[in-house]
Design a protein around this nucleic acid. Structure first.
Lengths: 220, 220
DNA sequence: ATATTTCAGATCGTATACGGTATGTGATGT
DNA sequence: ACATCACATACCGTATACGATCTGAAATAT
């Protein structure tokens, strides 16, 4: 008799609950996570909440201070730059590794997303644009056969969930160039360019965004 | 009156305690971590132990199964390959980023480590050799100015701590080639080669080790 | 002999309790 | 008015307790 106990532990449940809200931007960076309050909200005790928070802490989504409490990680500007730089490396590699497994449908989907982004350039909505941008990049590396590298790339994106919404609000000039570079990347893939060339195109694309951001910051 | 309370929480203490033992290979992959036993060993209750375990779980050093318990992560062969591949990417990038900050002393130290490795080829000790190998690579990227990428590279090495000791036991033939490739990498750095060339040298060096391992596995 | 059931011991998951630490507020002194 | 201190409150950190679940071994059935 196999009894499939799908019941998930409360600790796990809480982990998902908090994580969804951070990634869904319901809890913004700096948002104070009061353990007791969360426990009461979910109708459980604080112990499983603490375990969930510890896991999120290790993933960098939450910052924890002894005797003070937990808050959604503040990704300051330096960290933003570091994370984007790392993400460029990881995503470039993940995309290159995904190439042999990529299907026409995947390419078509990425193309469709980028077309939506282009259409949006007229009447610019930074939040929607940034959201599509993420979808575009995830579409490129989703087939990556190395789950380890995919997960690190995922975590990188999640880590910036708080700032994501505003990335292109900071550097709106980058938007048209960004769409153009996406097209270029898709072209390289279609033409079966060297995986290494594609990797570097993805990396440089991301690094140029960081560079634009850095300059914007120092000039203002 | 500033009172610097250096006292670290028991949860943190336990985290360090377990982590040291995993990385120091006192707890090998598969080792069963009984929460109550650890609590008793450290003279504390299980709650902080559980928190520590959750963090280690999120870092991939521990695997946790509901109602069964925690054990030191088993890095199976596929995971080993994936992790090494990822590490090649990260370490290559980290090393390239570190180049401008690298000092002569750093290079000299790396060279000394590699010389020790070469000396060891005569009377081969896989464990000591693998340990030096790690030191060599860490020496190359330690100056990396992007803490985020360094940390991921560190975690990659730590994740393999269990298998590390045996890497070169599996593919002893790789050892002389490895030393040679280290020399080559050092030469490129000394001659101020393109950062990108150095990045790829480091990456390929690691990937070749993986490849040797993969072939060794399929042929046996 | 092999498969199934039963049961006890080990271990986990979570609730509750309580002392400790940080933080804001109002009283007190200058 | 401003700084300092005392105190109340909110929240955290950890211990303890106990029911739930798993595991392996002995007992039973086939």
């Amino acid at each position: 008799m196999i009894r499939i106990d799908e019941r998930i532990s409360k600790s796990e449940l809480t982990y998902d609950w908090i994580r969804e809200r951070i990634i869904g931007r319901e809890f913004n960076p700096g948002y104070r996570l009061v353990l007791g309050a969360i426990a009461k909200e979910l109708g459980i005790s604080v112990v499983p909440v603490r375990e969930a928070v510890r896991r999120l802490e290790a993933e960098g989504l939450i910052e924890f201070e002894r005797n003070v409490g937990a808050r959604v990680a503040m990704v300051n500007q330096d960290e933003y730059i570091d994370t984007m730089q790392t993400l460029g490396v990881l995503e470039g590699a993940a995309t290159a590794l995904a190439l042999p497994l990529m299907r026409d449908a995947d390419l078509a989907r990425a193309q469709a997303i980028n077309d939506s982004m282009r259409a949006m350039l007229e009447d610019f909505d930074p939040v929607a644009f940034t959201s599509l941008n993420e979808k575009f990049h995830r579409a490129l590396f989703q087939r990556c056969p190395n789950p380890h590298i995919s997960e690190l790339a995922d975590r990188g994106w999640n880590r910036m969930s708080g700032l994501r919404s505003s990335t292109f609000a900071f550097v709106p000039d980058r938007a048209p160039r960004s769409v153009q570079e996406h097209d270029e990347i898709l072209r390289l893939i279609r033409e079966n360019a060297e995986p290494h060339a594609i990797e570097m195109a993805v990396r440089q694309h991301k690094w140029r965004t960081v560079e634009a951001y850095r300059q914007q910051r120092t000039s203002s």
